[in-house]
Simulated assay, not measured.
Amino acid sequence: MSVYFVSKVLQHGEVNYKPIEKLIFALVHTARRLRRYFQVHPMLVLTDSPIKQVLSKPEVSGRLVKWAIELGVHEIHYAPRTAVKASSSDGTGAYLILIGPDGEEHIYALRFEFFASNNEAEYEALLSGLRMAEKMGIKYLKVSVDSQLVANQMNGMFEARDPAMQNYLALAEEMANKFKRFSITQVPRSLNKKADALSKLASSVFSHFAKDIWVEVLSQKSTDVVQLKNGTLPVDGATTRKIHMKAPMYMLRDGVLFKKSFMAPLLRCVGPSEAETIVREVHEGTCGMHAGFRTVVGKIMRLGYFWPSMYRDTEEIIKACASCQCHAP
């Protein structure tokens, strides 16, 4: 995919344009500089400003009329801009901090292998924090988030109308009820710069993180797992077809997901953190023999474990093994 950057310094009277006029002028300037592309391809403009409404007003006059005519010869569509918590070509990321009564911090970075909007990323971070707090045996929990929507939906002040937000809200409320005392408040984004900066880093690469930061890669949305348990299907047709094809290969037993095997017992599905522990134990643990990744994957499956990206993950972990780098033939 090619990326083009177009810039222009405003001169003289252009500096006094209204903000909406500056946006339209930027679009006009881009259309002039990239005329060949605008003439051949339909263009999609992602913006939160009412550019289309302003240009289509009958009372528009002066330079706006000129710009409307100039842009009218191109096939331009306008759509709201979708905000993303932190995105890259590899996925999106989020970041959370658990602070104990004594002030000790436990830092937790998340990497999403699926597209997540800003609100979905906020809910995924919240759910991951709730799961982590539950495993640590925490009974009293106070949550601070920078998302006004998530905080107010959890407190009952906002109504969740979008089906995806309704699923996230129901799951978050169910998990919050497991604590003896739970509260959630919104903090200004300006006071949450550390988390925002690290969430952007989590969306691109994990190698920059210190060793005391816990990292987890989420391959699917939390609501997708709940839909599998409840037997319901998402609204998206493509996702529904994918689940229809893959669901017969899995089964739930006592709330634990297993993958069916043709010539072996059921394989218990594990998450990224547990998967990394299993790979390292089999490869370089007490009984490890530092074998190749295919041999290691075969042994893991004979032990009764499975995750979809086990071949790729095992190969990456073994490539980073210091002993294999020093003593491999």
Rank of each mutant, 00 (worst) to 15 (best):
H283S: 04
N167V: 01
G288W: 10
D162I: 06
H77R: 14
L127W: 03
L252Y: 13
T240R: 15
D254P: 00
M301E: 10
E113A: 05
I76C: 10
M249R: 09
E174V: 03
H77G: 05
V143L: 09
L233R: 13
S273Q: 13
Y140C: 08
K259V: 02
Y305R: 06
V145C: 08
P58R: 15
V279T: 08
K259F: 07
W214A: 01
S89W: 05
F115G: 10
C326A: 09
Q153T: 01
R302C: 08
F182G: 03
V3A: 13
F38W: 10
P58Q: 14
S273G: 05
S261G: 03
A86E: 12
A195Q: 09
R33A: 00
A210V: 02
G129M: 02
D102G: 06
K22F: 03
F158K: 07
V256G: 05
L149F: 08
S147A: 05
K200L: 07
R63C: 05
P19E: 04
A94W: 02
M154I: 04
V150H: 06
E315Y: 07
G91R: 08
R294S: 03
R302P: 08
S222K: 00
I213N: 09
L218F: 07
V84P: 04
R302E: 13
P58Y: 11
S203P: 05
R161K: 15
K259R: 15
Q39D: 10
V84G: 03
R241G: 06
F209W: 04
H106C: 07
A116D: 02
D313I: 08
R161N: 14
D313M: 02
V40H: 07
C269L: 09
V279E: 09
R280D: 01
A291K: 08
A68D: 02
E104Q: 07
Q148A: 01
S204K: 10
V226I: 02
D90T: 01
R36V: 04
S128A: 11
R189M: 10
A197D: 14
Y78F: 15
T47Y: 01
A172I: 10
A170F: 06
V226F: 00
E113L: 12
K260P: 03
Y4C: 08
L71N: 11
Y78C: 02
R253W: 05
T82W: 07
K139H: 14
R161H: 15
V73Y: 13
S56G: 06
V60I: 15
P50S: 13
V235Q: 13
M157L: 06
P50M: 15
S49H: 10
E105H: 13
N152I: 01
D162G: 04
T286A: 08
I243P: 00
A291W: 00
I184G: 15
V225M: 10
Y17S: 04
L110D: 12
L126E: 08
L171Q: 07
S261N: 09
L44D: 15
M154Y: 06
A264E: 00
L257Q: 06
E173G: 03
P272D: 14
H327W: 04
L141Q: 11
G129E: 09
V270W: 14
E113F: 14
N192F: 10
I213D: 06
D313A: 12
S203F: 03
K260F: 00
A164S: 09
G285R: 11
K229E: 07
T232I: 12
K178W: 01
E159K: 10
S144D: 11
P248V: 11
A170K: 07
E124V: 12
I138E: 09
P50T: 14
D162A: 09
P80C: 14
R63D: 04
